[in-house]
Design a protein around this nucleic acid. Structure first.
Lengths: 345, 345
DNA sequence: ATGAAAGCGCTAACAT
DNA sequence: ATGTTAGCGCTTTCAT
């Protein structure tokens, strides 16, 4: 019975089979044909390898071949379903192409993100998929310019030469706004995430565009928030709703933002959707079982990850440099119960 | 301005500094003192390294030192918040101890799990944290017996010599059952997950024990289900509720199970908690915003991951072999709204 | 206080 | 059809 995991090396196998290491290497790498190695020798080598439970050292191969088959993936928070879903898609896609992925969690800190990417390059990952914190891209640009295949997901950078994958924030937001506006809402508050990040900026732009089309404009007093978190949603919704009592609808940039807003609404005695409509970007699991099922703009999260992974593996295995820099994934409006019509006044 | 990422090697640095590679290596590894290398030489080496943007190759180091600083983590489904939360805790803890983690998703297939672990060992990971599918442990036992530091999380194996970390399923279930029984429920249906896995078996045992204490017993006709999924919960709840109309409460083994059950209840015209009480193991994000906030037995998921990671890193960096084989993490009953009293009959 | 050289396990160019 | 050998980039023993 061969040991399943051993520390025997190629030279052990060669010795056992009475052949040279090159012959052993060739056979074990399926190059027997090409080198016209006799069937009997090949067979012998394979048996020896089997007997010794030979496992080729990827480390040694990597050093020799200068290819590690390693990808790095960094996200701001893996406990956030949005990012874990991306991480899953990346891992699975990478695996299918023969790559393994080293996972890193930046905790939303740019400094940490930088350190992690540094470590990953030091480990000779062949490609990088990163969901950046989104405010500083210098370290990403640098590593990209040095020739590292790199794909940025979600919090992209405007005007960048890096390959980027993101949802269609503008179209998604416009759909959401269209629903709100079509239902008579004219005083719409915006709960924003991290200002300056592309998802945030583009959603803001979508709001503006939609408003412009109906001859309105976005008052900066109607915008609040600074994180994609529950707390930010709660605090900013409270602020907005007390300062601007004329608000009939809230557009939240994330699900946690929306839940925070919902809580704020309850505390202020506002019923959703009767007194206040609520819509948000991102989707929740089990949204249908919520007190008020949220109407959302749902992103195709696995597709973001899948595409990002494929963009780097295609480049790695087939040398296909992505023709397009910016890849935009469509989103879907999921109409549930949290948006209502304004009462005719 | 030094290049941030380059491909210059140690010998490049040595040449630049007019010293030997050994000296360069020593200085750059902080061994200058120990080898009594002159301050000026050391300084020169550092400057050269800086100038060339030298980044030591971890793969070369790994080959030489036979230490990769790599951990493997495999889970059945990273898009499940339970597992992504574990993965996060593991990654972060590992990182803090100087390790990186390769992430792998088995998709709940034992065969895949086996292949992945095989690949990971081939990549010379120094330790393994695995949330197994939970039905077959041979491959895990094997790799463990070969001396690989390995910690099993969640779906553990009874009577194993492997190091295992899991929640206190029995105590948690008994707490849940105590609540149900205290509220007068005597006809309690059980929605189980993957039969044969330890979490499933122990929860079943907890149900039995609690029932025995009040002089009742668990009828096998009151158990249904075969996965920890929504569908399994839905199907088995429908079956149980139609076959046994006397049921007043359902104990679900997972949150998705519980949501499936909730849907089934709605369709059967049963109100929760008035007509049917519902309680489940695992917790949901935003449970408070559910139509009927679920009463749950909440696991300390991050702690499961943290402990597992620490168990392997402690062994790796300090040679501390875990004294205990089985590590049980306490759980907490979170009383919300889905459990009611039976109507006096 | 520093250097030369072996060798970790593998692949591939260059023999024969 | 198979073997010899250099070398990937690093650490460390042994010299000096």
């Amino acid at each position: 019975m061969p040991k399943a995991y051993s520390n025997s090396t190629l030279s052990d196998v060669a010795r056992e089979a009475n052949v040279s290491v090159s012959t052993a290497s060739r056979v074990l790498n399926g190059l027997a044909e090409k080198y016209r190695i006799s069937r009997s020798t090949a067979q012998l080598v394979r048996e020896s390898a089997d007997k010794l439970g030979f496992r080729p050292s990827q480390v040694a191969r990597s050093l020799r071949l200068k290819r590690t088959g390693l990808l790095g993936i960094v996200v701001p928070d893996l406990s956030n379903p949005f990012f874990s879903s991306i991480a899953r898609a990346v891992t699975v896609s990478a695996e299918a192409e023969g790559f393994s992925a080293i996972l890193a969690d930046s905790g939303g800190a740019v400094g940490k993100e930088k350190t992690l990417i540094d470590q990953l390059t030091t480990r000779s990952v062949e490609g990088l998929i990163v969901c950046p914190v989104g405010l500083n891209f210098e370290h990403l640009e640098t590593v990209h310019q040095q020739g590292m295949p790199l794909v940025v997901v979600d919090r992209c950078k405007a005007n960048s030469s890096m390959v980027q994958v993101t949802s269609d924030h503008i179209a998604g937001t416009r759909q959401a706004m269209k629903l709100l506006l079509g239902n008579g809402h004219r005083h719409i508050g915006v709960l924003q995430g991290i200002a300056g990040t592309l998802p945030c900026d583009q959603r803001l732009q979508g709001v503006q565009e939609a408003l412009t089309e109906v001859g309105a404009r976005l008052d900066s007093a109607m915008i609040a928030g600074d994180q994609f978190t529950y707390e930010s949603g709660y605090t900013s919704a409270r602020k907005l709703l007390t300062t601007n009592p004329q608000i009939t609808a809230l557009f939240a940039m994330s699900t946690p933002n929306a839940f925070g807003a919902y809580q704020a609404a309850i505390e202020l005695g506002l019923r959703v959707p009767d007194d206040l409509s609520l819509i948000c970007f991102d989707d929740v699991a089990f949204a249908d079982f919520m007190q008020v099922p949220l109407t959302t703009v749902s992103q195709d999260v696995p597709e973001l990850g899948r595409l990002a992974a494929s963009l780097v593996t295609q480049q790695l295995v087939h040398g296909k440099v992505p023709a397009q820099k910016t890849h935009t994934i469509p989103v879907t409006l999921l109409t549930r119960a949290s948006v209502g019509k304004t009462s005719p006044s």
